[in-house]
Design a protein around this nucleic acid. Structure first.
Lengths: 331, 331
DNA sequence: TTGAAAGCGCTAACAC
DNA sequence: GTGTTAGCGCTTTCAA
């Protein structure tokens, strides 16, 4: 920066101002500085800027998996909101593992992010303590924790699944199964399963058709496998709710391979409104969790909080049941 | 850090060493320091560390889209390799737009990453210049540029598509179409289209069944739409190559909706070995580009380069044609 | 609108 | 194995 200042014939301070957006610098001087910088191949050093100004422009975020359209959409939406505010996302994937989440949060916090957005409301004790004492806005998403750390942008996974059970029951189904993952890992998946069990009880139905599809993420292939297991053990199953659209599609293909008509013989439901659920033949009944909106709301909340606004700390984004081809009424 | 030092009864320097992995600190002293830090709720400040040590531990990466399983797998694999070396990915999505890529690279470079991994070999002039003068390892992936900036980990998208054309021709198909996106945006998609056109010419066939499916990313729905267009304009089409498995699946569903048997009436091919291509009914013939391996190789290259090794600067990861259900021979 | 002085919180380099 | 000194490249603060 000193070099640039020398070439431009100004002080380093003026160079610093020229590189700021709100810089109160003479337009002409600024142009001269930027030209000098360009000529010298100077690249502004943000690490130094961070230290002195105590502002990094980072917003840390954790998601269970990068390779998941729902979370990718949430992060993409956050990213778009942040772009206009010169904020950058520092992303970490936790692999559906709270122990890994804890380590990720620790590493992220060392980078001095100005806010932290985590997926889900279940964390290790130490992770919780770190977030509580970080002195930055913390937002939990994709969930509605009982005892939130800070702010929340999400919905009840259990309630969403209960609504789907009600839909199937209204269709006349009684023997309804659930395909989901290892409950310790994916807590949102576990919430959906809880919702399923509770709803079945409410309707006086047995919730014994629970298939454990293993450690998340539950892929299409795992969904197909689980469906095979369910059809083998309970051939008279009338409807199956899957933890996500991916596993639901896998289940659908298993039915196709076996010549089982969907929805005539078996109804299917998924979760997440993934692209595939809108285009598969038949289309898949699902729950739209509004992944993008969750990201937008979380990011806007961060921006508002950073601007010192006393923003709303609990935003519920209600999911929407989308009844589609795999569960047509009256069949 | 000074506070921690006081509580632990040591100098700040010893605290600094205690927080390092290779710290030459007495185990007992170290334990005392960490206990003091824990008690005070001290979180190591990496922004200050970065400035003094001139090492950020960042590796910058750009990908066209977060919401794409191929790139997510590449980034995931990189991330796993980097974790063991205390390196963190600083990710930016470019939206298949070189102008946005340029701005992203500029922002990323200001964070002083220790290496830069970009997707593709086509960039704006300014982006190229910035990368060339950044004085860090630059790696281009998912492509095999003629005039690489630095290192390369990739393959020829054109050649991969040529191989698929050869496969279809060997099956006896002559009237073969191609569904792809706007050539200006997704340069890898454009390369595949180029490969298609060249291969058709080599086989003495006409490449006039080219459907432009619009601006990337080409979704399943867009693939279905494009297939409808192709079937309407050229009902006698025998085979269709799609720019990705997602559009290929969309095309498959369009055939299903129209009662067109795949592969009996029409053969289909995709690209990318997405999960869906292995489980759909029928399964989809595709090209496995080895997304994870690209990420692993790129990350390992970065690690080797940072260790001062004179590592191999051009790694070709040959794709593999996977002949599956949508193109069964002899039908 | 511009400049000078001081220092952000760590660590390289050296000494002991 | 531990401490001292100096300073990384910016920006805050104050003055002109």
């Amino acid at each position: 920066m000193a070099d640039v200042a020398r070439v431009a014939g100004v002080s380093p301070m003026t160079v610093s101002r020229a590189f700021k957006r709100d810089g109160t610098v003479n337009a002409e001087t600024r142009a001269r500085v930027l030209a000098a910088a360009d000529q010298l191949g100077y690249v502004f050093d943000r690490t130094a800027s961070n230290l002195k100004s105590q502002r990094t422009g980072f917003v840390a975020a954790t998601i269970p998996s990068l390779n998941n359209a729902n979370f990718a959409e949430t992060v993409g939406a956050m990213s778009e909101v942040f772009e206009a505010h010169d904020l950058q996302i520092l992303l970490a994937a936790t692999g559906y593992d709270t122990a890994l989440e804890e380590r990720s949060i620790e590493q992220l916090l060392r980078r001095r992010p100005e806010a932290l957005i985590v997926t889900g409301g279940v964390h290790t004790d130490r992770a919780r303590r770190m977030m509580e004492s970080a002195a930055i806005p913390v937002i939990e998403t994709w969930d509605l924790p009982r005892d939130p750390i800070g702010h929340v942008v999400g919905f009840s996974n259990a309630a969403a699944t209960q609504e789907m059970v009600a839909h199937f029951v209204a269709l006349g189904h009684r023997r309804i199964g659930f395909i989901g993952g290892d409950a310790d890992r994916d807590t949102r998946g576990a919430d959906r399963r809880r919702g399923f069990v509770a709803a079945m009880a409410d309707h006086g139905l047995s919730a014994d058709r629970l298939i454990d599809a293993g450690t998340p993420p539950i892929t299409m292939a795992r969904g197909a496998q689980a469906m095979a297991e369910l059809l083998d053990s309970h051939p008279d199953t009338e409807a199956v709710i899957c933890v996500s659209d991916l596993s639901a599609f896998g289940a659908l293909t298993e039915c196709q391979r076996r010549g089982i008509a969907v929805p005539d013989a078996v109804s299917l439901g998924g979760f997440g409104a993934y692209d595939i659920s809108a285009i598969s033949v038949p289309t898949i009944t699902t729950v739209d969790a509004h992944a993008r909106r969750i990201g937008e709301e979380a990011a806007r909340l961060v921006v508002a909080l950073m601007a010192g606004e006393n923003a709303q700390g609990r935003i519920e984004v209600p999911p929407r049941l989308l009844v589609r081809g795999t569960s047509r009424p009256g069949v």
